[in-house]
Nucleic acid binder design. Structure first.
Length: 561
RNA sequence: CGGGGUGUAGCGCAGCGGCUAGCGCGCAUGGUUUGGGACCAUGAAGUCGGUGGUUCGAAUCCACUCACCCCGACCA
């Protein structure tokens, strides 16, 4: 089953999507929802098995939890606002509303809380490999961001911080094993914990150009972090003696670039104002002109759940003079400043009246802020926060995320245990997720050429593409059939292309599907009583005799792992 | 949510008031081919996304609706 396509589907917007569809591995059912066809499902199950083995090896216990979840659990956990519209809901015949699980922390915490009574029952490492549902604002990239997806989620329950650290360490190691065994080098980076909440958190990234996430990393030391979380050292601006504030006319000049150019100063001599609305409240953000606001950091500083850039109407309503705004003399609006405003002097800033800016603005002499914190995006080239070496930026796809959750869920959902001294304490939690479909798609993003997929051996749907040329030749057909049976009997996974197609068609399909080893059997190779063998990733072919071929192929495959 | 775009055969597209809706790929049958997407012949396949309107006449114009795709949040 499955059919390869010569032309890319019109709605494919990235390589992995295009190849997944063209090679007949997936089919879209509706936006953000896909069927996995036999070929795709085989790869999927290989990834799943590797994950399962590593989870079991790390002490995990697999279980199953339902997709339908009571809203009551979500009300109890208090995470309803942060999931908001992402949560799919359904109604039963009595009009009772239920959730389709976007994750299972609520259910598992409730479950474990009812079983665990004593510190003697801890630690616990239950996990599941199941589908989850999230009504994403914009599904995209084929399997990269979808609304229904399979996820491996393991949850750790410990009696104390040391236990959590140990569970976390075990999982990090298990994750490293998983990516290594899949043949997919992933890097571990510091991460923001987002809607899930909690303290420490790391992501595992597959580095690819097309990735949605930006990663800051230091080539000199071990430092690596998601852009959302990353810091770099901010170079100081000019340190001058504060001068008297001076008004300058800047007609029609609004952007930092325009103003700085007009006044002949650098961007780091200016203050930029940006406006957000956080949980309904207008926030005035000040940052040095050469930096940009990191919205994730800002959101965390403000501890708010919903945040968006203020619309023009919202800006106007707040009485802000767009284009010429600054924090100077501003009243009734919460001001958040990036700490970069302390690194410099005699800044240019808006005058809060049209077509006018102020020179020689200094903090805190001329204005104040309700919060001063690091809310800037880290920049490539700036010094590393750990070792001062210049940091770099790369793009990647998030293929795993681990969190130290702490106790907020166990407290809210009533998962307590008695410690040695008979005191009731909340269980300390962690959670550890891998999106299987995302990992599959990311593998293709990282491993392909202009002909098609180049599967890493451990997760290829089959190991060998056996291809007969002139398949209707009785001799070829018989030898090919025997070879297929022998290889299969020897435990080698073979996709047998015995279609009576022309060589070009078969070779192109072989390249598209991307199985690691291609074996061609044809009248030509049979003249020497042999076959032709070629690795998908290589250009060269070589001929091997039919005699002893099974062992030879086995040897090749074993060596390749 | 805002903005834009597209729905015509399994896939990719053309047709954009004039009556029997086309092309390429794929599919079926027969024949010639067989080491990098072969060729000839014949053939099957379409409620032109849906509903309503305008018109002698609608795939084509209008309205609504549904589906799918893309873009957007440093502009202050």
């Amino acid at each position: 089953m499955g059919r390869t396509l010569k032309e890319a589907p019109s709605d494919a917007d990235c390589v992995s999507h295009s190849y997944l569809v063209r090679s007949g591995m997936v089919q879209q059912v509706m936006t953000g929802v896909y069927s996995l066809l036999p070929l795709g499902w085989r790869t999927f199950r290989k990834i799943e098995n590797i994950i399962r083995e590593e989870m079991d090896a790390a002490g995990g216990q697999e279980l199953m939890m339902p997709s339908l979840q009571p809203m009551e659990l979500w009300e109890k956990s208090g995470r309803l606002p942060s999931f908001d519209k992402t949560l799919f809901t359904v109604r039963d015949r009595k009009d009772h509303i239920m959730a389709l699980g976007p994750t299972h922390e609520e259910v598992i915490t409730n479950l474990v809380g009812r079983i665990v009574q004593s510190y003697r029952d801890l630690p616990q490492l239950p996990y599941q490999i199941q589908n989850k549902f999230r009504d994403e604002p914009r599904p995209r990239g084929g399997l990269l961001r979808v609304r229904e997806f399979f996820m491996k989620d393991l949850y750790s329950f410990d009696a104390d911080e040391d236990g959590l650290d140990e569970s976390y360490r075990k999982m990090v190691q298990a994750y490293k094993n998983i990516y290594r065994r899949c043949g997919l080098p992933a890097v571990m980076v510091e991460a923001d914990s987002g809607a899930i909440g909690g303290k420490a958190s790391h992501e595992f990234m597959l580095l690819v150009e097309s990735g949605e996430d930006e990663i800051i990393f230091c080539p000199k030391c071990e430092y690596a972090a998601n852009m959302e979380k990353a810091t770099s050292i901010k170079p100081a601006g000019k340190a001058e003696d504060p001068l008297a504030v001076e008004e300058v006319s800047t007609p029609g000049l609004k952007s930092i670039e325009e103003v700085a150019g007009f006044l002949n100063v650098k961007a780091d001599q200016t203050l930029k104002s940006v406006f957000y609305v956080c949980d309904g409240q207008v926030i005035f953000v000040v940052i040095r002109g050469d930096f940009e606001v990191n919205e994730t950091k800002l959101k965390n500083v403000l501890k708010c759940t919903e945040m968006h850039m203020a619309t023009e109407a919202e800006v106007q309503e707040a009485g802000i003079v767009a284009g010429y705004a600054s924090a100077i003399g501003l009243k009734g609006i919460k001001i958040v400043a990036d700490d970069s405003i302390k690194l410099g002097s005699n800044f240019v800033a808006g005058a809060n009246k049209p077509d006018t800016h102020l020179k020689n603005v200094n903090f805190p002499r001329d204005f104040n802020a309700d919060i001063v914190a690091d809310i800037a995006k880290a920049r490539a080239g700036d010094p590393c926060p750990k070792c001062q070496g210049p940091v770099k930026i790369e793009r990647g796809i998030e293929v795993g995320h681990v969190f130290k959750l702490g106790t907020f869920l166990s407290e809210r959902l009533g998962a307590y245990f008695l410690d040695k001294d008979g005191n009731s304490k909340p269980i300390i939690m962690g959670c550890y997720g891998i999106g299987l479909g995302r990992l599959l798609a990311a593998a293709i993003e990282q491993n392909h050429d202009d002909k098609g997929i180049i599967w890493p051996l451990p997760i290829a749907p089959y190991q060998v593409y056996l291809c007969s040329i002139k398949a209707d030749d009785a001799n070829v057909a018989a030898k090919a059939e025997k070879l297929y049976n022998d290889l299969t009997a020897a435990g080698i996974e073979v996709l047998f292309d015995d279609r009576p197609e022309s060589p070009g068609v078969k070779f192109n399909d072989a390249d598209l599907i991307g199985l690691p080893l291609r074996i061609v059997i044809s009248p030509r190779t049979l003249k020497d009583n042999g076959v032709e063998v070629k690795w998908r990733k290589d250009k060269e072919t070589r001929n091997l005799p039919l005699e002893g071929l099974i062992e030879a192929v086995k040897g090749l495959l074993d060596k390749a792992v």
